[in-house]
Design a protein around this nucleic acid. Structure first.
Length: 623
DNA sequence: TCTCGCACTTGGGAAGCGCG
DNA sequence: CGCGCTTCCCAAGTGCGAGA
């Protein structure tokens, strides 16, 4: 019974369509049949399950294929044509893979595809709207040297031909481009490059003109003149078979063309001939007439000889001897000419060499004269400043001096001298317009005040650095005495050992160190290292007795021991500064080729230190 | 009328940069 | 690394205007 009940239960689990009612005719047969039915049922069940699995797998494969296609579309979208905002849905899309979510993904992908297409079309439209009618020419070419393009060069030459100042050409081109909505050009040629482009064009013009003249059989020069503002402006025109070239005054033709002619006149023998011809024409009554140049004439003679020889040949063998005689005459003449030309060439070479030497000698003399003149100028300025009692250091000094003068001329001279002193002697670095001197008194005063302020800025900056280094020296060399300058809170040696100029520069003289100071505490830093004394002139002692004279003297020589040997430096007092009124001095070693310049290190020396070194003979005042 | 200063051009050279 | 080019700097020359 139990078995039957169990079978019934199992049977009841099968689907109804698989139910087979048992019969009572043959129990064994029924039993077998039931067993078979059970097996078939089980197989059906397994088959149904397998079908379901296959179906799910197919669905999954289809969905995965769709997702792959969508991801491919996303990857193909343009990167920089437009900014697309990737939604969270899209970001999480690869994670979605199952069931009904796949249908949503497909819809999203379709919408996104449409959106991408729409925005791509919009971008294309915008690009087409912004695109100029013609493509923007590239500013530079991607070739060796990265040169400016021909278009830029054409623009520059067009500006030059219209007398646009070279400094403004790039700005003009840039402005025009901006006005016409061309893309902003950030790499326009500098003034130097504009200059170079101009040079190129001139070189080409020179070459063209020379070639044209050389290969011209029929060369003519015409002249014309015009009067402007009472002045005569001459112009000349060279007309040859290859074209026309204009020579003239800048007001008649462009400076560009005028400049082309300068080197030709100087260097070309062809143009030398042309110049002579032009002069002869200009000396005429003004009529214009064509002339042949020397080369044309020479060519004509050669042709004539050639024609003569050919005629002789045509007369047959009977005239052979005569022809040979003529030939020999011609050859002999040619040899003579060659000899003459050779001698002339040697003579010309000698002459050229002599002229070259004379020119070099003249240039050297000119340079020496200029140098002498410059030095004299500096001395004159220094003398004038000395007569004025020194350089004005503030507005009060300036006003008091100016008010004391009676004549306007003297006031102007005084102001100009002060400005000149700062410009040429001290070589003060500032706005160059402050050095202008063709101004009235008020403007000159204003500029001078500005110059003083500029100088004070630098001096204050330097003074601000001094105490820090001085303190360091005090701490490290506390044994130094301050008896030289009792009123000063700082030891004299530390002030004079202070290096003020920028530390990046290599020192023109060895930087005084605290170690050196401690080793020789009895003397001052730069002068402190002086160990030998040379005899000083009496005038130096006079100067010692009159300290104010220091204010007027500028240049010195200073000798000290640099470890192994004595070295003499040239020096210059550049300012009287600081709370202690120290002399600020710069040094340079002329034996090592150093020269005076504004970048040298600066040292502060007290009056007592200077007096000591003059007494020792290691410091001399030159002028 | 001459001189001087300024602004500008011109020529030469050196340094730096980029391409082949 | 060499070469071509640009850029910067300097000196000399030139024209113009202001001032003596």
């Amino acid at each position: 019974m139990k078995k039957l009940m169990h079978m019934k239960n199992i049977y009841s689990k099968f689907p109804k369509r698989f139910h087979i009612k048992p019969t009572s005719t043959n129990l064994d047969t029924q039993h077998k049949l039931i067993s078979l039915k059970k097996k078939v049922s089980v197989l059906y069940l397994q088959l149904a399950n397998e079908k379901k699995k296959v179906k799910r797998k197919n669905t999954k494969i289809t969905n995965l294929k769709k997702e792959i296609d969508f991801v491919k579309v996303l990857n193909k979208r343009p990167k920089s044509t437009a900014k697309y905002v990737q939604t969270d849905a899209v970001k999480t899309l690869p994670k979605i893979s199952m069931g009904s979510q796949c249908n949503l993904t497909r819809l999203d992908s379709m919408e996104l595809k449409n959106e991408i297409t729409y925005w791509q079309n919009e971008v294309i439209k915008i690009n087409q709207m912004n695109e100029p009618d013609q493509p923007v020419p590239s500013v530079k070419e991607k070739t060796r040297g990265n040169p400016f393009s021909h278009k830029i060069r054409e623009c520059v030459l067009a500006c030059i031909s219209k007398n646009v100042p070279m400094q403004n050409i790039s700005d003009v081109i840039g402005s025009i481009c901006q006005i016409f909505n061309v893309e902003e050009i950030d790499t326009l040629p500098s003034v130097a490059s504009v200059h170079n482009i101009s040079r190129e064009a001139k070189a080409i013009c020179n070459k063209q003109l020379e070639e044209a003249i050389k290969h011209s059989d029929n060369l003519t020069i015409m002249k014309d003149a015009t009067t402007k503002q009472g002045r005569q402006f001459y112009g000349a025109k060279i007309n040859c078979s290859t074209g026309e070239f204009t020579l003239g005054h800048p007001s008649e033709i462009s400076t560009f063309n005028m400049a082309v002619l300068k080197p030709l006149v100087a260097y070309s023998t062809v143009i030398e001939c042309l110049g002579q011809m032009a002069l002869s024409i200009l000396k005429d009554d003004g009529t214009t007439r064509p002339q042949k140049n020397h080369f044309t004439q020479h060519k004509f003679d050669d042709n004539k000889c050639k024609v003569d020889v050919e005629k002789q040949q045509d007369n047959g063998m009977a005239r052979g001897k005569k022809m040979r005689r003529i030939k020999s005459i011609i050859m002999a003449q040619a040899r003579k000419d060659a000899e003459i030309l050779k001698e002339k060439s040697i003579a010309d070479d000698i002459k050229i060499e002599q002229e070259r030497r004379e020119t070099i000698k003249e240039r050297i003399e000119e340079k020496e004269a200029k140098l002498k003149k410059s030095q004299q100028h500096l001395k004159d300025v220094i003398n004038q400043i000395d007569k004025m009692g020194g350089k004005w250091k503030n507005e009060f000094e300036m006003n008091s001096y100016i008010q004391a003068l009676q004549y306007k001329k003297d006031k102007l001279n005084a102001l100009k001298t002060q400005i000149l002193f700062r410009k040429d002697v001290e070589k003060q670095i500032c706005d160059k317009t402050l050095f202008r001197r063709n101004l009235d008194i008020q403007q000159l005063q204003k500029n001078l005040i500005n110059l003083m302020e500029e100088e004070n800025k630098i001096t204050n900056l330097e003074d601000a650095i001094v105490p820090m280094e001085v303190d360091a020296d005090i701490n490290l060399s506390g044994i130094l005495s301050n008896h030289d300058n009792p009123s000063s809170p700082l030891p004299a040696s530390s002030t004079c050992s202070t290096v003020i100029s920028n530390p990046d520069q290599l020192p023109s003289i060895p930087e005084p160190s605290t170690a050196n100071n401690s080793q020789s505490p009895s003397s001052s830093s730069v002068p402190k290292r002086n160990q030998s004394a040379s005899p000083s002139a009496p005038t130096q002692h006079e100067l010692i007795s009159k300290p104010p004279c220091w204010f007027k003297k500028k240049y010195i020589t200073h000798t000290w021991d640099e470890g192994s040997e004595l070295t003499t430096y040239h020096g210059k007092k550049i300012a009287l500064c600081g709370t202690q009124k120290n002399f600020r001095v710069i040094y340079w070693n002329e034996l090592e080729g150093q020269i005076e310049n504004t970048n040298l290190e600066k040292y502060d020396l007290t009056v007592n230190e200077l007096k000591n070194d003059i007494s020792e003979g290691t410091l001399k005042i030159i002028y």
